[in-house]
Design a protein around this nucleic acid. Structure first.
Lengths: 138, 138
DNA sequence: AGCACTATACTTAGCTC
DNA sequence: TGAGCTAAGTATAGTGC
């Protein structure tokens, strides 16, 4: 399996397979009762999402962390060697991520104070919304 | 298609289909170059995720804009509020890991001054990895 | 862009070990 | 648990509209 070169064919393939993935996700819910969210960007950069019961609720459960569940942000990648050097780098990276996160949080909070609350540019509502939820039910 | 009643069969089905969905997601990336993230909770409540290039990068692109520059188009999507909340939690977690990492580094440096140098018991070492999560296995 | 068709390949429920 | 098997059901690349 390899990357599709032809721009048009790639876009078509994305549309078809995106529907496929969303359908698989909805089946996973119907069959197993599993909560699931899928977020994707098309090759042309447009956002699409699917979520059951909703993308929001999944993210809250994942990142908000419930009272009893351990935090679901599971960022651990096994290293097999002991590297003090790596710890130094990790410390630096963590610092950077911490700072970046704080900046983004501040920016988001600022933006949320703005007067309007709705779709930004044309693409958002149609594609961020969850219309497929019903359509895709088998 | 309807819900599987038998608890055990439902769990098995979830495992198989979760792998299927993740595979579809990765194929979507390979074929089309689409960035995609999948978050799911098993029927028993365990979190799983798949993301390319990473779950976090997808979420940022979806809801936040870049980490450094304040987004030119302010994020007005309802989920931004969730993200703010998540970033608050993440900040706390990153701080904790930063401190833990520094303690480990100090401990390791101390240990390296000691007499022996050989295979070290695994548990601590496994946790030292960098954070980019891809596949969360239980 | 989207819809319909089809041959081929893929996925998977149920089962065994 | 997990892995392997198989029949039956699905997905989809390619094609023409």
């Amino acid at each position: 399996m390899k990357a599709i070169q032809k721009e048009a064919a790639r876009q078509v393939c994305f549309s078809k397979r995106r529907a496929g993935v969303f359908k698989k996700a909805s089946e996973l819910f119907v069959l197993c009762g599993a909560e699931i969210a899928v977020l994707a960007f098309s090759p042309s950069g447009k956002p699409f999402s699917y979520g059951h019961p909703s993308v929001e609720s999944i993210l809250e459960r994942f990142f908000g962390g419930s009272a009893d569940a351990a935090p679901a942000t599971p960022p651990r990648h096994p290293l097999s060697a002991v590297l003090v050097q790596a710890l130094g780098r990790q410390e630096k990276e963590l610092r950077e991520r911490l700072e970046a996160g704080k900046r983004r949080k501040a920016a988001l909070e600022e933006a949320l104070r703005g007067p309007q609350w709705g779709p930004v540019g044309g693409a958002d509502v149609e594609e961020l919304g969850l219309p497929e939820l019903d359509l895709l039910q088998p």
